[in-house]
Design a protein around this nucleic acid. Structure first.
Lengths: 122, 122
DNA sequence: GAATGCTGGTATCTGATGGATACCAAGTGC
DNA sequence: GCACTTGGTATCCATCAGATACCAGCATTC
């Protein structure tokens, strides 16, 4: 009778919802290679808005998957690192990114075939 | 110069966004054990609305991760199965669910500590 | 024979969310 | 003085998730 993600009330559902997230996957994947500063993340993950990035990082920090460290440079820089708990997750979610990159073409082909079939009147 | 999920224009980004989805993870996890009917999925994945389930299944079918088969019973039943492409993904995303179940408690504890620290005025 | 339940959906409405944009302070370089 | 850096927050709007209601066709129940 452990946790079960298929049960509506199980907290696992909340955790799953949190980690099954595009931006979280990309952030964790980057942090696997070492600490990264905020704007460095922002530049590397093309297309993230500041809002989504800081929001994602805040959630990850709350879940103890990432740690935040403000450094008294000028201007103040903020460095994000992965925690040991986060590392176990990062390995898992990074395989998601790798799957996406590996099978992107198959998926795109499938989509085109599907859309063509639909357009042809099924 | 292969696909790169960190590039804004790479189609991988779209694929990643699609598969990093709570409902898709839960659906694929179930279909790993064999074909399942629509309402059976609906009952097992507690809390999915019909809308989100049919929407998720339609997307998965478009991406050739799942196949839909209407069976002429009365009333007509619809059976969903996983494809060979879908199977490779399902194995990956199921480990996400497993991570969530395994580390749910650690994450919850971390959240409580974080919130307590914040409430204490940082 | 009318009421209820099953099947697998779609249509509609609303509250939450994602993303774009602008703005902030403090400091450096020109 | 003007532009640019740092890491954010505030605001606005379009999109989206979720709840609810509805649909047809048939079986069972009362």
């Amino acid at each position: 009778m452990g946790p079960n993600a298929y049960a509506a009330t199980c907290p696992t559902r909340l955790v799953l919802d949190r980690i099954a997230d595009k931006w979280a996957v990309l952030v964790l994947g980057l942090l696997l290679d070492g600490p990264v500063r905020f704007n460095q993340l922002r530049r590397t993950i093309e297309g993230v808005s500041q809002k989504m990035l800081s929001q994602t990082l805040k959630s990850l920090e709350r879940d103890d998957l990432v740690t935040r460290k403000a450094i008294a440079t000028v201007p103040v820089t903020v460095e994000y690192s992965i925690t040991s708990l986060g590392k176990t997750l990062a390995v898992t979610v990074d395989s998601l990114r790798i799957w996406a990159e590996a099978h992107m073409e198959s998926v795109q082909d499938a989509q085109q075939r599907y859309d063509a079939r639909k357009a042809a009147g099924l």
